[in-house]
Lab assay of single mutants.
Amino acid sequence: EAHAAIDTFTKYLDIDEDFATVLVEEGFSTLEELAYVPMKELLEIEGLDEPTVEALRERAKNALATIAQ
């Protein structure tokens, strides 16, 4: 499951495998979680700032909209 989540994140969020791995290690496994989890939870991840989190959430929401079509 972790590998599938990493693949999904790299494909749809335009991030590298290392960043995707950090997200999975922090407990995220779906685009929905990244799109809708409280921003505070993402900001608790070391190295993430508000602009990065906002961009990540926007990419996740856009990916979900694209997949739904």
Rank of each mutant, 00 (worst) to 15 (best):
D49L: 05
A2P: 08
Y36C: 07
I67S: 05
P38A: 10
I6G: 02
E17Y: 14
N62S: 10
L31K: 01
D14M: 13
T30W: 03
D14T: 05
L56T: 00
A20P: 01
K11W: 09
T52M: 12
H3D: 09
A5T: 08
I15L: 06
K61H: 07
K61Y: 07
F28D: 00
E33R: 11
T10C: 12
A55Y: 10
L43F: 05
V53E: 01
E41C: 11
A4G: 08
A68H: 13
E54C: 09
V37K: 14
E1D: 12
I15H: 01
L56G: 00
E25T: 13
T21A: 13
D16A: 08
D7V: 11
H3T: 12
Q69R: 03
V22Q: 12
R57D: 01
M39W: 06
A55I: 11
D18I: 13
L56R: 00
L13M: 04
G47T: 05
A68P: 06
G47L: 05
D7L: 14
A35C: 08
L43W: 05
E58W: 07
R57S: 06
Q69F: 04
A63Y: 05
E17N: 10
V24N: 03
D18R: 13
T52I: 08
K11M: 09
E25F: 11
I15R: 01
E46W: 12
L23H: 00
T66N: 12
E33S: 14
H3W: 14
V24C: 05
A60T: 03
T21F: 10
L13C: 03
L31C: 02
L64A: 02
I67M: 09
V24L: 08
Y36A: 11
H3R: 15
A5C: 04
I6D: 02
L31Y: 01
L13V: 02
G47Q: 05
E33Y: 09
R57L: 11
Q69L: 09
T66C: 08
T30P: 00
E17R: 15
P38F: 06
E58K: 09
K40C: 08
D7W: 12
L42T: 03
D18P: 08
F19C: 08
L34Y: 01
E46F: 15
I15E: 00
R57Q: 15
Y12K: 02
V22Y: 14
A65Y: 08
V24W: 15
A65C: 08
E58H: 06
V53R: 05
L43S: 05
A35I: 12
L34T: 01
E41F: 14
D49A: 04
E41R: 13
A60V: 08
A63N: 02
L13Q: 00
E32T: 07
A2E: 10
F28G: 00
T21S: 10
V53Y: 05
L64T: 03
F9E: 01
V53C: 08
T52D: 06
L64S: 02
F19H: 03
D7P: 06
L56S: 00
Y12H: 06
E26S: 15
K11T: 09
P38E: 12
E41D: 11
T8R: 12
E54G: 07
I45E: 01
A2W: 15
D16R: 05
S29R: 15
D16N: 09
E46S: 14
T52H: 05
E44T: 14
D16I: 04
T30M: 05
A68R: 06
A60D: 01
E44W: 09
R59M: 12
T52W: 08
L31R: 00
E1G: 12
G47V: 05
E17A: 13
L34H: 01
N62A: 14
A5G: 06
E44V: 12
T21G: 08
Y12T: 03
T21I: 11
E26K: 15
K11N: 06
V22N: 05
A63V: 07
L48W: 06
I67E: 04
F19R: 04
D49T: 08
L43N: 04
L13P: 00
D18A: 14
T10Q: 09
E1W: 13
E1S: 13
A2Y: 15
A4S: 11
A63T: 03
T8Y: 12
S29F: 15
E58A: 10
E54K: 14
L31V: 04
E25Y: 13
